[in-house]
Design a protein around this nucleic acid. Structure first.
Length: 588
RNA sequence: GCGUUCGUAGCUCAGCUGGAUAGAGCGUCGGACUUCGAAUCCGCAGGUCGAAGGUUCGAAUCCUUCCGAGCGCACCA
């Protein structure tokens, strides 16, 4: 019997008793409000709490009395769920029968293994998720990293909840901003290449984007020249297209190296250069159908009065498309490619308006799937002094940040003289850096803006990724040692009744509750829920481990009991790691 | 101006579908390694939960107003 079932059984029983009692008091009272389930704040108050305030009015009785009466009534029943009733003032609480809970839990956790905690709340639902979406004129920065972490993590969480997930990226490789770096390269590049300069492709292109910004200040015709270049590009001018192909290739090479390093992968790439015209036909069709209207100058609009907004232009007077037009087309073609039931856009909160309008338009155009589109809107990553500004050179470069973290991790390993014990210095340092970064970015509620202090934030102590990895490594190390002497424990049965300390009970509850946590994270598209649970269980384990001997326990039966509990904890930690982009290290 | 998100310890953040004494980490100060990994653990100090009203038996949580901040409201993407 799992914890969730026990909770539900008690809830049903108490509600049943409340209802029966209510009927005894008055024939009219045939309903009661649903019982709320809570967790008591202190261990001596039990493990499950049912507050009874809500019934005071109906029974014309103080909640404390209600609790007493209920307890008496229930104790007279022969068939009760497992556990013991506790009176706690206006609360009726349950103390769980841990022995049977632990036994059932252990079987479940070991049987399920890597899929322990998974649910079927999205039961095969096809969910497409779009994230990252970089421009091809500069390298990735900290903001992209939050986007990528969220995209990967939410994908993993949705999968763990039974969804069939398709991860897609949309490369913004077209437009005036792309032409700016091309133009600067043409003027100042002197044939420099990533090979000749030794500069990573995306950074090289980014340098010319910066160079354009400088040049733009001196030459007022610069922007016009860039616009001319875009016209040439759209006309298919060979020289322009060749240059575009070359520089895009450099950037994409660089980006894929960054993705590889940070564990970001996509099932499918879309390119703006291939999708930007797609929406036009759909908009013209919508115009025919009367969903949109046309101004005298030929531009096409939608009236958003119905959702309390103004009007929005969808086609320019010259007939060319806009950002919105393109996104309409992209969404439709994606659904043609892979008929999703839901599409999640991981895009910064500054685009809220855009998505509100986009979803409304797709709905108006009659696409049934438009009802299940989500904008996973995440907040900005700010620096202690405010926003990152490329003009002021305060943008935190993704590659630099990652390399700095990896260097620090390397130094840490070396200073602990663990270089020889670790499974590859470079590999381990990278895994630590990535875990630190992902955990840092994911532990904050996605919707909130967050502050990143490059100096202070890069810590490996306290509530950080490396702390969690360390707990995993410690348990793993202990289990290896146990395996070496396994023979001595042959035939010793696991005895759940030996796990009685407060920490042990808390650990068991957290293990048992893990599936609920995964479910909640999935329903809310929120990795932070996994993060905080992961930290809680690690911290509790750490305290328990510190205060108790496990492998060195005085009694062999105790060793077996505690080792098994440690295994369960490790399984939950490992499964959580996969959901938030932290690698499990056996040594670090 | 309109829309939207937010305001919790010195700093960074949990807690928010109303419930028992508002929690962590960092930082400060002080403890714990002849014992399973000290990237650890324990303790001290630190709060009018932006302000004021309201709903309620009960509000950090819900509602209203105000104050303060971010983001958006392009025939840019």
């Amino acid at each position: 019997m799992m914890l969730q079932e026990i909770r539900e059984q008690w809830k049903d029983l108490i509600e049943e008793q409340l209802l029966a009692w209510s009927k005894e008091l008055s024939d009219d009272e045939t309903t009661i409000s649903p019982l709320t389930i809570q967790v008591p704040p202190k261990p001596e108050l039990g493990d499950i709490a049912f507050p009874l305030f809500a019934y005071a009015k109906q029974f014309r009785m103080a909640p404390v009395k209600i609790a007493q009466n209920l307890k008496e009534r229930i104790e007279q029943l022969e068939n009760r769920p497992s556990g013991e009733l506790i009176l706690a003032g206006p609360y009726l609480n349950i103390r769980l029968d841990f022995t049977s809970l632990i036994n059932d839990l252990k079987d479940k956790v070991f049987e399920d293994g890597d899929i322990y905690g998974n649910s079927n709340v999205y039961d095969g639902k096809k969910v497409m998720i779009e994230f990252s979406c970089p421009n091809t004129n500069k390298p990735l920065h900290l903001g992209h990293m939050r986007n990528d972490s969220l995209g990967e993590s939410v994908s993993a969480i949705l999968k763990a909840n039974g969804a069939d997930v398709q991860k897609v990226n949309l490369i913004n490789n077209r437009g005036v901003h792309i032409c700016k770096s091309m133009l600067a390269y043409k003027k100042f590049g002197n044939g420099e290449t990533p090979q000749s300069s030794g500069i990573k492709g995306d950074h090289l292109v980014g340098n010319y984007y910066v160079k354009f910004a400088q040049w733009e200040k001196e030459d007022p015709t610069a922007v016009d020249q860039a616009k001319e270049m875009l016209v040439k590009w759209e006309e298919g001018d060979k020289e322009t297209i060749d240059l575009w192909n070359k520089m895009n290739g450099w950037t994409l090479d660089g980006l894929s190296q960054s993705y590889e390093k940070t564990g970001v992968h996509f099932d499918k790439y879309y390119y703006e250069s291939e999708t930007y015209k797609l929406g036009k036909d759909k908009v013209l069709k919508g115009l025919e159908d009367g969903v949109f209207y046309q101004e005298e100058d030929g531009s096409v609009w939608i009236d958003l009065d119905e959702i309390g907004l103004d009007k929005k232009v969808l086609l320019r007077s010259d007939g060319t498309s806009l950002y919105m037009t393109q996104d309409i087309g992209t969404a439709i073609s994606r659904h043609d490619d892979w008929p999703f039931e839901s599409l999640v856009y991981v895009v910064a909160s500054e685009q809220q308006y855009h998505f509100k309008v986009l979803f409304y338009i797709l709905d108006k155009l009659g696409y049934s799937w438009a009802k299940d589109l989500h904008h996973l809107s995440y907040g900005m990553v700010n620096l202690p002094n405010g926003k990152m500004k490329s003009r002021e050179g305060t943008v935190v470069d993704a590659d630099d940040l990652f390399d700095n973290l990896a260097d620090l991790a390397k130094q840490e390993i070396q200073s602990k003289e663990r270089e020889g014990l670790v499974d590859g210095l470079e590999k381990t340092a990278n895994a630590i850096a990535l875990g630190a970064l992902n955990y840092y970015l994911l532990q904050v509620d996605p919707t909130k803006d967050m502050t990143f202090d490059p100096v202070k934030s890069i810590s490996f102590n306290g509530n950080t990724g490396p702390y969690l990895q360390y707990m995993g490594a410690r348990i793993s190390s202990m289990l290896r040692k146990f395996d070496e002497v396994k023979a001595e424990y042959e035939g010793i049965e696991f005895d759940a009744s030996l796990l009685t300390s407060q920490e042990e009970r808390e650990l068991v509850k957290m293990i048992a509750n893990f599936p609920e946590v995964v479910k909640k994270a999935g329903l809310n598209y929120n990795p932070a829920i996994i993060c905080s649970n992961l930290y809680d269980i690690s911290k509790m384990f750490s305290k328990w481990y510190h205060d108790n001997k496990i492998l060195m326990a005085e009694d062999k039966k105790l060793v077996v009991a505690r080792i098994n509990l440690s295994k369960m904890v490790l399984q939950v930690i490992k499964n959580s790691f996969k959901l938030v982009g932290i690698s499990y290290l056996e040594t670090m």
